[in-house]
Amino acid sequence: MESEASHQHPKHNKLTNHDSILTIPVLPAELVIEILSRLPVKSLLQFTCVSKSWLALISSPEFIKTHLSLSANNKDYTHHKVMMSSYSRLMSNVKACSLRSLFYDSITEAFDLDCPLISYARYMCDHVSFIGSVNGLICLLIQVNEYFIWNPSIRKYKKLPNTRVPMRVTYRSVSGFGYDELHDDYKVVVSFYSNSTNPDCEVMIYSLKSDSWRTRDNDGRELANGRGMFVNGKLHWTTTSDDYCFNHNSKNIISFDLADEKWGTVEEPCYGEVTHFLKVGVLNTDIREVI
């Protein structure tokens, strides 16, 4: 190695002036971190083979957090992706395209995300349902109780322990996925509703840190509807009216705080008489209601 290095920069051997600076600079550790935290995940995975210290650095939780926050706060949306899924009977497909390209290019190409769960879902005669995504992680559901957290950047996924399915003949479930910053934990919240005229509800919360499900009641809140929208540490759902099975008149927005696990109600905007189906969406870091 030594001879190679000197061979690489022969000119430095000739320098005698002490004021001159020799060779390529040795980068201070903090600068190496600054540079590496700006690399795409694909390169980082490969560069774990560079040395033991690079492997330790790139795998450390602090580095992963720095990398994530730099990618997430990139104003050019270089690393942001829009995910699309399509499914017909027994077939599903997940594609993604660059958000930056959608904004700035005349044509945007979508490419296959190579979701490892599609073939499994096909085998189970089902499709993959999208529950939510946060910090580059995507929560997926197959069948009624098989939840997965998938990280497409490193092409790895984790199957969550199966939820206990309520012992009722019919029920429906509503889920959401988000990040609890206070406890540095990712959580999946599922509400199971029995399909009866006097509906009762069972809420189950999965914590990635403990890798287990816990039950919690919904404190007599109205029943949630649709997919949970994650914003500012809380999951948000629209609520259904009483006979939710047949009449999709949604009235309010309820929230569930992933840190203190408390339910709340979001103050309604003034939109007059509504007879339509409401949906919530996220715009930047605000919650929006779409009628």
Binding site: M1, L36, S43, C49
Partner: peptide, 21 residues
């Protein structure tokens, strides 16, 4: 980062003057 992202591990080692341990 943009300049080294597609480099091989060997090339990165030389650029950063790291010997594999």
């Amino acid at each position: 980062a943009d300049r080294i992202k597609d480099k091989s591990v060997e090339a990165v080692r030389k650029i950063f003057r790291i010997e594999s341990d």
